[in-house]
Amino acid sequence: MTFTVTVRDHMMIAHSFAGESFGPAQRLHGATFIVDATFGAAALDASGVVIDIGRAAEILGEITGSLTYRNLDDEPDLQGSNTTTEVLCQVIADRLAERVHDGTLGAGQQLQSLLVTLHESHIAWASYSRSL
């Protein structure tokens, strides 16, 4: 059995894609995403929680805030990447995982997994999951 806690934020970005398969999305365009981060643990901590929801929401907001209102084509750490929805899921998940491992998100010893989902619209979304 796994316990999960999800926090949500959003971000608005601009980017373009390289490759004929992207058609008109090769041109600079904008996207708005709803971002869900789900933390999983097999057991609760001594306080009876998976993670501090307020702290998790704050850290997710810092990460999405660092991408919001940016042209991702100009971001040095994203150079050479097609910043597809799937890639952005991994970028956000990896940045959250760094915060778990460095203790910024609290002790987190019981955390085992992380799932990040970006909703492009009410009918399309992508996710990336990783172990912690």
Rank of each mutant, 00 (worst) to 15 (best):
P76V: 05
P76F: 03
D77S: 15
D77T: 13
D77I: 12
L78S: 12
L78M: 13
L78Q: 12
L78W: 13
Q79F: 00
Q79T: 00
G80S: 12
G80C: 11
G80A: 12
G80V: 11
G80F: 12
G80L: 11
S81N: 15
S81W: 11
S81P: 01
S81F: 15
S81C: 15
S81G: 07
S81A: 13
N82C: 05
N82M: 00
N82F: 05
N82W: 04
N82P: 00
T83A: 12
T83R: 06
T83S: 12
T83M: 08
T83L: 05
T83F: 03
T83C: 13
T83E: 06
T84M: 09
T84W: 08
T84E: 09
T84N: 08
T85C: 09
T85W: 05
T85E: 04
T85Q: 03
E86A: 07
E86F: 02
E86L: 01
E86C: 01
E86R: 02
E86K: 04
V87I: 01
V87Q: 00
V87E: 02
V87D: 02
V87T: 04
V87G: 03
L88G: 13
L88W: 15
L88M: 14
L88I: 15
L88H: 14
C89H: 10
C89P: 10
C89T: 14
C89Y: 09
C89Q: 10
C89A: 13
Q90Y: 01
Q90F: 02
Q90D: 09
Q90G: 10
Q90N: 10
V91G: 09
V91T: 13
V91M: 11
V91P: 07
V91N: 08
V91I: 15
I92H: 02
I92E: 07
I92M: 07
A93N: 05
A93S: 08
A93M: 07
A93T: 05
A93H: 01
A93F: 04
D94G: 13
D94E: 15
D94C: 15
D94K: 14
R95A: 13
R95I: 03
L96M: 10
L96N: 01
L96W: 00
L96Q: 04
L96D: 00
A97M: 09
A97G: 09
A97D: 07
A97C: 11
A97P: 01
E98C: 06
E98F: 04
E98A: 14
E98K: 10
E98G: 06
E98I: 09
R99A: 12
R99N: 10
R99F: 06
V100Y: 11
V100A: 13
V100L: 15
V100C: 14
H101M: 04
H101W: 08
D102M: 00
D102Y: 03
D102L: 00
G103Y: 07
G103H: 01
G103R: 05
G103T: 05
T104Y: 03
T104W: 05
T104E: 07
T104A: 14
T104L: 07
T104M: 05
T104I: 06
L105K: 01
L105T: 00
G106M: 06
G106C: 08
G106T: 07
G106H: 02
A107Y: 08
A107P: 04
A107M: 05
A107T: 11
A107Q: 10
